[in-house]
Design a protein around this nucleic acid. Structure first.
Length: 212
DNA sequence: TGCCAGGCCGGGT
DNA sequence: ACCCGGCATGGC
């Protein structure tokens, strides 16, 4: 499995090149994006982030001080805006209370206890927590998402019913524990997923993983 | 036009 | 321990 996973990585890398994730100007922006993109196309999230930027709302303090309703209207384009506004507020509360709103302090925390703390925030599940850990805080954890499950299931590398933790373990047991590798690998899987492995999957047979 | 998108939660069985 | 409905916009 180790060789297989690295071979897939190299195939993806040579097909698509470096992805340079996460597309954001700050760690806090990464975190907001991670919540906003829950079951939502990134295109819609970008619009919401742009609005947050325009309204100077990309800091914990500013978000803390606006109403839930106003926040919801700002992030409207990302869909599920009422629950997401609530989730952003929940994270910001945790962030300010436990880490004084300091990304540096957040990043100093150990991966495992921090992951547990993030999962205790209502609205942050495994993927969102791991995205924050990896892409906002540079912690070595592999993010699993719907594309990853679908791609690996369709290529019969995992059981169709495999759950998040099981698949994450496959990656983390068989890859060198390396933040850069985890970052690039997951980004490449999303790239592949968008191009060739949507639910309605017209052209999986020409996806780069089928070559050679 | 209908289907889908870089999930998560709560309630029911 | 699963299973499911709800949450909602915008693009193709």
């Amino acid at each position: 499995m180790k060789r297989r996973l690295m071979r897939i990585y190299h195939q993806l890398y040579s097909a698509f090149g470096p992805q340079r994730w996460w597309p954001a100007e700050s760690s806090f922006e990464v975190i907001m994006g991670a919540i906003l993109t829950q079951n939502t196309s990134w295109q819609n999230v970008e619009k919401a982030i742009l609005k947050l930027k325009t309204k100077k709302l990309l800091t914990a303090e500013h978000i803390q001080h606006i109403s839930l309703k106003r926040l919801a209207s700002v992030i409207r384009s990302s869909g599920f805006y009422n629950v997401k506004a609530l989730r952003i507020k929940e994270f910001v509360k945790f962030f300010l209370n436990s880490y004084s709103g300091s990304i540096k302090k957040l990043a100093q925390q150990e991966l495992t206890p921090l992951r547990k703390q993030l999962l205790a925030v209502k609205g942050i599940g495994q993927e969102t927590a791991d995205s924050i850990l990896l892409y906002a805080l540079n912690k070595p954890i592999f993010v699993i998402d719907a594309y990853t499950l679908r791609i690996f299931s369709r290529h019969r590398l995992i059981k169709e019913a495999a759950d998040y933790a099981a698949v994450q373990n496959i990656f983390m047991r068989n890859l060198k524990c390396d933040t850069k590798l985890f970052n690039e690998y997951h980004a490449l899987l999303v790239k592949l997923g968008k191009a060739f492995c949507r639910k309605q999957n017209p052209k999986c047979e020409i996806c780069p993983l089928h070559d050679q």
